[in-house]
Design a protein around this nucleic acid. Structure first.
Lengths: 145, 145
DNA sequence: TATGCAGATGCAACCAGTCGCATTTGCATC
DNA sequence: GATGCAAATGCGACTGGTTGCATCTGCATA
């Protein structure tokens, strides 16, 4: 599968050993498309590759996150969710009421990053942000009640 | 102690039962001043009130967070930290390199909240934000190497 | 002050995630 | 292809946090 070769290349470029376990774990995230939790990945892998230990999954996810291969975000569910780092940087608007997750273009936060750097000398890492609040639909519903 | 009476009033206003356990737990957060983790609170309480169960602490923190009495923030350490909700809304800049936490005035994010509401109809809850990045000092250190 | 009940508490069992360590394996070098 | 070594893996033990349930208690009402 092309995905597996590509993933192996990414690992090699990051100076990581290319093991079948890592390739399977990272491919599972890529195929998922959306955010997935560690336990979802373990469940997914259990079907095709039951020999992969849970601790290996956790360690691989942690190192991949350190290397910037995947984004690790707390979406308010308690445990962190992982997403493959694609070309398109984006953020998430998470509704506290209905739980809906909307993608938000990167441009919204560029201004903030510039401001923080100019005024506080702080180089903010706004690569992947989770913003909580109430979505448009839920605001209407609440007002009607 | 005045703090305990005040805390009891806050609980009553939130229509919560005023139990000695809750008052002690919430007072511990108020006295801490800065962010504290659940385990720090348990440790603190163990000295003066060893009879309070850990599960009670976790449940009290969760309900206090739901009610908006305390802020719950993931500061990147893995487990969430709690802070008493004071009058002054603020955010945190957390350095990935040295771990230093700097307070950031609320005004920086007001513009973002307005923008999100106008363009996406999303009522963002930017009450207490943790922004990761690299602080001024650590940038200098990295450049020198 | 006595009563009733919803909600809070403590205990114990449970589970997800982490850590240490012995073994295995990818890969650079010869 | 053989060798050596650093890094990855799997296993098992451990720990911090959660959950279910029986008991207790704050507080509204009479």
């Amino acid at each position: 599968m092309a995905c597996e070769n590509e993933t192996a290349t990414v690992l090699r470029e990051a100076r990581q050993k290319v093991t079948p376990q890592r390739v399977h774990i990272l491919c599972a995230i890529r195929h998922a498309g959306v955010h997935v939790t560690a336990s979802q990945i373990i469940e997914d892998l259990a079907r095709d590759h039951p020999f992969i230990d849970a601790s290996t999954v956790y360690r691989t996810l942690a190192s991949a996150s350190d290397l910037g291969l995947v984004y690790e975000t707390d979406m308010g569910t308690g445990d962190s969710e992982f997403e493959w780092v694609g070309k398109h940087r984006h953020h998430h608007l998470i509704c506290r009421t209905c739980g809906e997750v909307t993608s938000l273009d990167n441009s919204y936060l560029d201004g903030l990053a510039t401001l923080l750097y100019e005024e506080a000398g702080f180089q903010a890492d706004l690569g992947h942000f989770a913003i909580f609040g109430v979505c448009n639909d839920c605001q209407k519903t609440t007002q009607q009640q």
